[in-house]
Amino acid sequence: MRRFGELITWLGVLWLGQALFASAAWAYIDPGTGSYLFQLLMAGLLGAVFAVKMAWRNVKTYLASWFARHHASDADIH
């Protein structure tokens, strides 16, 4: 699952890199503008990766509690 998240990130980052380097133009730098737009450009990607991570964490938490309950009930039987 973690690998899947990393794959999505890589594909997104490669797309971003292509977009940025294809339109290369040196100009007077307004440092805030680029950072602001860069976040917006990354937003979809970051949101998707975050959603995948959260879902995976929820699955892990559920499985951990299920196994804990399962072991506890086994212990009660024995």
Partner: peptide
Amino acid sequence: LHARAQQVWSDPATTRRRVRMSRRALLGL
């Protein structure tokens, strides 16, 4: 890429475009 973005998008007028960053995306950042 962030450094590159600062070079490519240097015109403050471009930020006027109405684009939103969801809370989930911000947490992802």
